[in-house]
């Protein structure tokens, strides 16, 4: 029990530490490997030249995924945000011929692409627990150097974010949190923030690493899994939907 929001990790913002509910997935959840592949595919195609064409398809995927996990708010936010970004991209230059507006419009075009990818990323973050993600990466034969360090990264992220909030609280109580002071002495502000953050995080990391080492983390190249990840009906459904969307996009592009 700690006052300053502490590492009860309660105060972790929604979009960060990849938390997830139960440790064991149900039959109708997508295999994390499929989710990662989907995200990678979206990221690569949309950011490539000509990638704008695939934005609507990715948005549809994002909304469908949000609906399957009953995240109604996200199902609404994704298309609304995308529409706003698209409007800024296409309509802003028409308002006045100033280059500044043009630059904002170009940035909005970039944001539109980020939103399309972000919709899929958000689903992954909310439904795949670090444990399952790690198991999936192992199953995909990612080298253990990355799965071990990556698993620790995912595990420790929420702890540090809570720690960040606590240090920030401590700074406010000492009168070090004022914006004016930070602008006058930015390097000093960075010092006041990072020194306690490193000191307290590394201390709590010590327990974590000791316990993980004693319980054999990284001891074998290929650990086993309580529930080995397996492709199932959900993955088939996702692949089918994505195939239809890609085909539609190609046809649509050809028609224009």
């Amino acid at each position: 029990m700690t006052v300053a929001r502490s590492h009860t990790e309660r105060a972790v913002p929604h979009h960060v530490g990849l938390p997830a509910a139960a440790g064991t997935p149900g039959r109708w959840t997508m295999d994390p490997r499929t989710a990662v592949a989907l995200l990678l595919a979206a990221s690569i195609t949309i950011m490539a030249p000509g990638g704008l064409w695939f934005v609507p398809a990715a948005l549809v995927v994002g909304v469908l995924l949000a609906v399957t996990e009953r995240a109604w708010r996200r199902a609404v936010v994704i298309p609304v945000a995308a529409l706003a970004a698209a409007a800024a991209n296409y309509l802003l230059p028409l308002a006045a011929p100033w280059p500044v507006l043009g630059i904002v419009a170009i940035t909005a075009g970039f944001v539109l692409r980020l939103i399309a990818i972000g919709g899929i990323a958000a689903h992954l973050a909310r439904t795949v627990s670090p444990t399952r993600l790690t198991a999936a990466l192992r199953a995909a034969r990612v080298p253990s150097a990355f799965t071990v360090s990556g698993a620790v990264l995912l595990r420790f992220m929420p702890t540090i974010i809570a720690e960040t909030a606590a240090v920030w609280d401590a700074m406010r109580l000492r009168g070090l949190g004022g914006v004016g002071g930070m602008l006058r002495h930015p390097l000093l502000a960075i010092e006041y923030f990072t020194v306690p953050l490193m000191a307290s995080s590394l201390r709590s990391a010590e327990d974590l690493s000791a316990s993980a080492l004693l319980r054999g983390l990284g001891a074998r190249k290929r650990p086993t899994a309580m529930h080995p990840p397996r492709f199932g009906r959900a993955d088939l459904a996702v692949v089918a939907v994505v195939a239809v969307l890609i085909a539609t996009t190609v046809v649509w592009r050809g028609a224009l």
Binding site: P130, T131, D207, R215, A219, M226
Partner: peptide, 19 residues
């Protein structure tokens, strides 16, 4: 601080999986 996962069953399985 020493938990590595976020659910009971995965936490219990952790050492066995690694070994």
């Amino acid at each position: 601080r020493q938990f590595f996962t976020d659910a009971i069953d995965t936490e219990l399985a952790f050492a066995l999986e690694n070994f």
